[in-house]
Write a protein that binds this DNA or RNA. Structure first.
Lengths: 211, 211
DNA sequence: GAATACTGGCTAAAGCTATTAGGAAAATGC
DNA sequence: GCATTTTCCTAATAGCTTTAGCCAGTATTC
């Protein structure tokens, strides 16, 4: 019998593609087996179970998204960086809805701590460095950015913004302008001291630990 | 045989409770049947199928959430209204995570248009009336509020904010302050004219049509 | 108050997905 | 060339979904 050449990596990648095509929650071990023209049970030599598959896809997406965001961020600062970062997320979600959904899978703390989620947190804080926020405010800001970006992308993907004459591109620009203005106004002002904060579509509590 | 007294309404309500207990995606026709101590097939006299059940739960949650938000909004204006509205969403998600997740189910346009999602949109715009925004800005603002609220609640529920010393309550307050300041600063300013916009965790495109 | 029609829950059965156990053939190592 | 490991397969169990058809209470009607 000719071997199909299955590996966890190939399965993960194919799973990510499948997710983009049919939706992350429709990703199933069976569907993946069909795609490789192989019996379902065969996949269990490479994957622990269905949840394992989904976790791998999530980690893959998290990593890919972090790479994109990092590339977008390179050499930028201030509002420029803010916009580039935000666009990286939005574009990724548009191009890869299934993977974006996967990146939002809730991971257990250990897995999350070892994931690219950590990089997401670092990048968020890096952007805020350009706004001179003192500590508790910085955490609040990280959380706000994460909320806006994730919330906007989710709602836009869900089609919640599609019954309107006002273009979503304009709203997005308006929102980024607003955030920039807001962060500048919160500049070198009040604030005690505290811990870290978390930003993005990342899965779990992990990435709060700043780098 | 003693009848169980099944009705679509009772099933929907029980489904909502089940969702809060085990998670919306774990809500299954089988589990619901077990809960009523009845055979699975019996439910199919009252529900079209599994998706129908989920849709009903989503509509129920949307309605319940709209009721709460409306109650919170009564007699308030300005920042007061903004905070009350936001808190209604956040509290609902904390008390009923399964229902909140249900409210985010993607509905088809017709169903969505007939849902309580419409009320959510109306309320969002009502709040913004206190800030004197001219049209395109109002839509942008509606979208931003929806994004922040939904995004924050999602991330908080996912535990993304839990690895930090800074309390989420403080961040929430900080964010609401910021939004209020931002909206006031965007006050009677620039802006052409355009369509409507959409805000909340609502499911689909429906509720963009303002009331 | 009995005949009639309806309704609600049941049994049975088929089709999917997930997962485990154990087998056999292909690739690898020495 | 043979032993070992790897890779995929067959077989089987189990749960969820959905359809079809039955039967007994419930409501209706004369």
């Amino acid at each position: 019998m000719v071997r199909a050449g299955l590996t966890p990596e190939r399965l993960t990648r194919a799973g990510a593609e499948l997710a983009d095509e049919v939706g992350f929650d429709q990703v199933t071990v069976s569907a993946l087996a069909r795609r490789f023209d192989v019996k379902v049970a065969s996949l269990y030599s490479h994957l622990k179970n269905s949840h394992d598959l989904k976790t791998r896809i999530a980690l893959f997406a998290l990593e890919e998204l972090a790479d994109r965001a990092a590339a977008a961020l390179a050499g930028r600062a201030g509002k420029d960086a803010l916009a580039a970062f935000a666009d990286a997320y939005r574009d990724y979600a548009r191009e890869h809805p299934g993977r974006y959904a996967a990146a939002r899978l809730r991971l257990n703390p250990e897995t999350a701590a070892a994931s690219a989620g950590v990089r997401h947190a670092q990048m968020s804080r890096a952007i805020l460095r350009g706004y001179d926020l003192t500590e508790p405010d910085q955490t609040h800001a990280v959380r706000m950015l994460g909320s806006v970006f994730h919330g906007y992308v989710s709602l836009e993907m869900a089609g919640s913004f599609s019954h309107t004459a006002v273009g979503t591109q304009e709203s997005w620009a308006w929102i980024l302008d607003s955030l920039d203005a807001l962060l500048r106004s919160r500049g070198p002002a009040a604030g005690r001291t505290a811990g870290g904060g978390s930003p993005m579509p990342v899965s779990d509590p992990e990435f709060d630990r700043q780098g």
